[in-house]
Design a protein around this nucleic acid. Structure first.
Length: 353
DNA sequence: GACAAAATAT
DNA sequence: GATATTTTGT
């Protein structure tokens, strides 16, 4: 008897381990459920069937044990039930664990999504029962139907189930993707930050020589990422690139004018107002194109800036002053906390002098 | 809807 | 790292 129970426990343990392993694999595959829906299906089924098998075996064993007890009497009536109870518990927990694991997986999603809608629970359960129903349909085809139709039905069920699973997987992965690819908060390039950027750019020999990484390192701004610098640099390069002749700038006295200082576009107002100190001397790359008159300004420039770009910045001489100063403060880092503040430079490139 | 900035993908 | 594309805010 005890031997029997031990044997049973052993089998359960063995099967439990197997289930555990299957579920582990299932969890792993779940990550690739979109690519491997069938694998997931197989593993899930494997675990499920294994559980069912264990449950059935346990039932059988229990029945046998009960029968033994009834007829074999005394021996271990209390002990046996005492030992059988955990089996029952295990039986229950197995079932629980089967549902639990699905829920666990879902919880993982929910955790990632961060929003768990309790109203959907009933729906989930319905869906689960549907899933189980389909399994049942699978295993127990309508006895009234002829064989071909049964197999047809089975196939349909399989296909349907496959499709629904794939759809689920798609939906989940889509949801997951949406979560994963949630956009980071926009970085606002304050004038100060941009100044640092320009400064670094200048130190590195101009926008076409400097690399994002170098720039970032030179800027020494906490939390600033390569990507951000890269993006900014791209925009900068784009805007400082030689534009196609037709700059709708002519006669627009509203627009600010710019000059090239050391390969950097600087508003003429800043550069020509005598604010520019000390610069002009450094590296060989420094080509100070002196300012011209308001009208001829772009003619002297290698690449006139687009009407919009730097006009939002105040290219103050502090570009040079900050040079080499190892100090960096977080104050230059501005995160657009509210949507209203984000995006347009019109709003957030404010001079902080 | 156009546009620009910033983020993200290739 | 450079460039293209997408998303986002105005």
């Amino acid at each position: 008897m005890i031997k029997k129970i031990r044997n049973m426990d052993y089998n359960q343990e063995e099967c439990g381990q197997y289930i555990k392993a299957l579920e582990e694999e299932r969890r792993k595959i779940l990550v690739f459920q979109r690519e491997l829906p069938l694998c997931l299906d197989l593993v899930t089924q494997g675990a499920y069937k294994c559980k069912i098998a264990t449950i059935e075996r346990c039932k059988k064993e229990i029945t046998e044990t009960a029968t033994d007890n009834v007829y074999g009497q005394s021996e271990c009536s209390e002990q046996t039930t005492g030992q059988c109870t955990p089996v029952l518990e295990q039986f229950l927990t197995i079932k629980d664990s089967s549902t639990f694991n699905e829920e666990e997986v879902e919880e993982e999603f929910e955790d990632e999504q961060g929003n768990h809608d309790p109203e959907n629970d009933s729906e989930d359960k319905n869906m689960k029962s549907d899933w189980l129903k389909s399994v049942q349909l699978w295993n127990q085809p309508d006895p009234l139907l002829p064989k071909e139709e049964q197999s047809q039905q089975m196939m349909e069920t399989v296909v349907k189930r496959d499709e629904s699973m794939r759809e689920d997987a798609m939906a989940n992965s889509g949801e997951r993707r949406r979560r994963e690819t949630e956009r980071k908060q926009r970085r606002c390039w304050s004038s100060q930050l941009h100044r640092r950027f320009l400064n670094a750019l200048h130190n590195l020999g101009g926008p076409h020589v400097a690399t994002p990484k170098q720039i970032r390192e030179l800027m020494k701004v906490d939390g600033l990422t390569n990507d951000e610098v890269k993006s900014h640099l791209q925009k900068y390069r784009l805007h400082t690139r030689r534009p196609s002749q037709t700059v709708p700038n002519n006669g627009n006295s509203q627009k600010q004018h710019f000059v090239v200082v050391g390969g950097l576009w600087v508003p003429q107002s800043d550069y020509s107002t005598g604010k520019t100190t000390g610069r002009a001397t450094t590296s060989g790359t420094t080509t100070t194109t002196t300012t011209t008159t308001t009208t001829g300004i772009y003619g002297a420039m290698a690449a006139p800036p687009p009407p919009q770009w730097p006009s939002h910045f105040n290219f103050t001489p502090s570009i040079i002053v900050e040079e080499g100063s190892g100090s960096h403060s977080d104050e230059v880092v501005v995160r657009c906390s509210s949507p209203a503040m984000s995006s347009s430079t019109r709003n957030y490139y404010v001079t902080k002098n």
